[in-house]
Write a protein that binds this DNA or RNA. Structure first.
Lengths: 326, 326
DNA sequence: CACGTTATTGGTATCGATACCATCCTGCAA
DNA sequence: TTGCAGGATGGTATCGATACCAATAACGTG
């Protein structure tokens, strides 16, 4: 920076200002500085900037699985809002692993991130403590339950399940099986499941089909669920998945076995991914506001980091998509 | 750090060493320092560390689209290798946009990343200049062509297309159409396509089906391709896609239209994703070493950053998966 | 014309780590 | 006993920005 200052014939502060507080440097000077910087190939050292200003423009984004289109869209939404605002997004893929998440939080705090956005399951007690102690602005996505001073952006998953339950009852489904895998069933998912059970009450038979999967959401998981369902409960059941991918896998498997969907086997997904409308029969699913949740979370976080008061939570709703599989 | 040093009754350097060069601190002292750090909630400031040591342990990873399972697996491979080695991976999603990529490179250089891994299409001239000027270690993934001092890890996509061409001719396909979209066809993909054309020579009819898509790889794109193919060329063609997702979309659409695959319409994918074996008929595709490319690229980069000599490139091969759609 | 105001610029201490060198201590060989 | 190697530890300058304050120029106003 000293070199650039010298080359441009100005003080270092003018160079610094040229690259940070826009507008406080005269146009003509600014151009001279930028030209000198370009000639010398100068790129401001972010580390030095963060250290000196004692406040980095880093925001941490925690995502269980970036391959999941739901989370990927959230990621896009977050980036699209934070980048123009001058923030740098550091992504951490937690892989549904709490110890990974804790390690990543530490790492973000090491970079002195001022804000963090979490998606997916809930924070561990240790994570929450780390975050509150550090005084970081925190926003949880996929839930509307603000807590511990963390804001929340999402939708009511219990209401979505209530709507789904009503839809199923209305279409005369009377044997409903919830498919899940122990390894990827976190508390929030359990709550979602309870909501469905409640919605159904005893107007239909209800059971849980527990599978063990090693990958979070796979087509195979759906196929396995169909096989398991046929083996244990026989035809005539409605399989409710927690994602569209395994639901699609179930459709493919059902067709392979010559089963009529939804007559022999009904299928429900969750998320509202592209495959839900690409596959035949069209999948019944719950479309959730993926991108918008990310964008809104980012917006809230920006406000918080600027020290402004913000709403504790935002409910962006959902949409029940009645397809041809129920 | 000063506080921790005081609390532990040691000098700041001992604290610093406790958190960085492992082994140079006596076990007993080390424990005292760690305890003090835990009590005080001390987390080393990465920015200060990077500034002071004039060498950050940051590696940039550039990916066109994290939702694409190919790139996502590469990402996993990279992270799994670099994290245990003490490096921090900063991911940048370029979205197939060169100006985004250039901006992200600048940003990485701002963090003084010592190494960068690129996947997908080729670097622009400006990008290459930025990288060489900065003296960063660079590795390209998905290609075996090392250039400009950048190492490369991948497979021979032209050989994969030659193998595919041979397979198609062997199975008697005589009308082959390459499906692509202008927006997402970069130079490497073109080279891949040329290789297929060469492999086929004039032993089969060859044409290109140009679609315009706004998303890189979607099911819809495959469905559109089927519709376009039927409209322009009629039945009996083999559609060659550059990804399994649109190929799967094509299968779904073909079945919806009552077409027999591969008799009325043959379909070929690329990448070797889960859906290729989940869908019926099973998709013919080229399986590429996704995860391993990432891991190997990371390994090479670690060696380079340690100043050791490394092989210029690594060819990890591919596997032609003959399915039921050809 | 004096004077407050605003726009622009510069000097220097400072952020929190690490590099580098110095010091101290211990154990062992001569 | 002496000398010395090597392990453990500490002191302090330094990395490259920004915060803070000061200085100067330009401008309008009464």
């Amino acid at each position: 920076m000293t070199d650039v200052a010298e080359a441009a014939g100005v003080g270092v502060m003018t160079v610094s200002r040229t690259f940070s507080d826009a507008g406080k440097v005269a146009e003509e000077t600014r151009n001279r500085v930028l030209k000198a910087a370009r000639t010398l190939g100068f790129i401001p050292n972010q580390a030095a900037g963060a250290l000196s200003s004692r406040t980095s423009r880093v925001v941490g984004l925690f995502i269980p699985n970036l391959l999941d289109a739901t989370y990927h869209q959230i990621y896009r939404g977050v980036v699209d809002r934070l980048e123009p605002a001058g923030y740098q997004v550091f992504v951490a893929e937690t892989r549904y692993d709490q110890s990974r998440e804790e390690a990543e939080i530490r790492s973000m705090l090491g970079w002195r991130a001022r804000g963090m956005i979490f998606t997916g399951s809930e924070r561990s007690a240790l994570s929450r403590k780390l975050l509150t102690d550090a005084g970081a602005a925190v926003c949880s996505v996929m839930t509307t339950k603000a807590m511990d001073g963390f804001t929340a952006v999402g939708f009511s998953s219990s209401r979505s399940m209530k709507a789904l339950g009503a839809h199923l009852l209305e279409r005369g489904h009377c044997r409903i099986a919830l498919v899940r895998s122990a390894r990827f069933t976190h508390r929030r998912l359990k709550a979602r499941h309870d909501a469905l059970r409640t919605a159904i009450a005893n107007k239909a038979a209800f059971r849980v089909l527990e599978l063990d999967a090693d990958i979070p959401f796979s087509f195979r998981q759906g196929a396995d669920a169909v096989d398991a369902a046929l083996a244990t409960t026989g035809k005539g059941w409605t399989l409710v998945f927690s994602n569209d991918i395994p639901a699609a896998g179930a459709i493919l498997r059902a067709r392979e076995l010559g089963l009529a969907v939804p007559r022999d086997l009904a299928i429900v997904g969750y998320a509202g991914l592209e495959i839900a409308e690409a596959i035949r029969p069209r999948l019944t699913t719950v479309r959730i506001p993926k991108y918008d949740m990310g964008a809104e979370a980012a917006r809230l976080l920006i406000e918080q980091m600027a020290g402004r008061e913000v709403a504790q939570s935002a409910d962006l709703g959902f949409e029940l998509v009645a397809g041809e599989t129920t």
